[in-house]
Design a protein around this nucleic acid. Structure first.
Lengths: 207, 207
DNA sequence: CCATGTGAAGGTATTCACAGCC
DNA sequence: GGCTGTGAATACCTTCACATGG
């Protein structure tokens, strides 16, 4: 049924589905069944059908889903139908790696600016992007940048977020292991890499 | 009540709690209330009390939780009470950044070996760790390495995982945006960085 | 006949509210 | 008074089973 609220867990899975669909599209296929897509992304077929059911019928019984059309719809839902200009703050080891990371492009996310406090880094080009001083952060809105990635040392996390909020950013991906606060209108997702590794031993039975 | 099964979502939060507890311990405090800890990590106090209730009573009404004792227990549950020797496969931009990342130490996770296919990288030292050829992967068990981080290009993801499994690794953190398969005895957690950023626009209302 | 879409059932996690303890 | 621990209530997500449609 159309016009359902899409559950958060479904939203979390949509990017994986999108990747699978784009992959299939590259293979030249036109339709894909929930089963095939499920195998590709590693979930169950009923999960996929349920997820898709929240935002309309894109499938044809006996045939499957129309890849192009479904991919387009998912992009629209995720608001990835526009190229998203993204800023990176903190050009250390992790920051540089993120600048070089090609994966963001897949989703139409484009890192178009990089900032650092270190004057020795300012002016350098890393992966085609010129590093600017943090004082230049204020003009993000004018430059149509609404997303930001924070890869600074933890001490600088909150001030960086504050600066980004002031600059009009709407979404922040925080790689710092810190709780940062921001007004409700700005969505912050924190990704603590070490934490993910830390819960691995729990699942390894004995040893 | 003791002897409950700990929910997965609770396990996911335990590392954050642990970080908060270690931070408080460094401040020289002996006890902490669910409220203070909650503020520090950014959840609600009842969530914390419920989470801790799954594995016994460490709190004293009117006083709070004994930091040292609770931290020790959480480490034990997460099996982080031993130093965990970890291998890194793929010393590209991301891999190098992970080698330099100090955050793993917090949890007693120690990257003690790094591997790459590229002969030009083999032999180099990056952040104190000498890069070895992937053929050397087979001796991980002998070297008491049970955890691994995969930071190779996607094409190499599954073969790398296979090699790690063969080498006796028990847990894998996969930074590749690929579904990889491994026997049930090996736990794989996939962390797709681009995907996290990709769901950010969904939560930014208009713009 | 094959594959979708979905109500209903079942399971899991969050939130509440308060009794009990220091 | 302050704070923990927890049953009960609620909300959320997953799984199933099957009616429906090409």
């Amino acid at each position: 049924m159309r016009y359902h609220k899409i559950p958060d867990e479904t939203v979390r899975r949509l990017p994986i589905y999108l990747r699978g669909l784009m992959f299939s599209a590259d293979q030249g296929r036109e339709h894909i069944s929930s089963k095939s897509l499920a195998d590709y992304v590693g979930v169950h077929s009923w999960q996929i059908r349920k997820d898709f059911s929240y935002f309309g019928d894109f499938g044809t019984p006996g045939v499957g889903y129309h890849i192009e059309r479904l991919a387009k719809e998912i992009k629209k839902i995720l608001r990835l139908d526009v190229i998203r200009r993204t800023a990176l703050v903190g050009v250390g080891d992790l920051g540089s790696a993120l600048l070089a990371y090609p994966g963001f492009r897949t989703y139409g996310l484009d890192i178009v600016a990089a900032f650092d406090v270190d004057p020795r880094k300012v002016g350098k080009r890393i992966s085609e992007v010129k590093v600017e001083g943090v004082d230049a952060l204020s003009h993000l809105k004018k430059r149509q940048i609404s997303l930001a990635i924070v890869a600074v040392p933890q001490e600088a996390a909150q001030t960086t977020v504050d600066a980004l909020v002031a600059a009009g950013v709407r979404g922040i991906l925080n790689f710092t292991p810190c709780k940062v606060t921001a007004p409700k209108r700005v969505k912050v997702i924190t990704l603590d890499i070490a934490m993910e590794l830390a819960r691995l031993p729990y699942y390894m039975p004995a040893g």
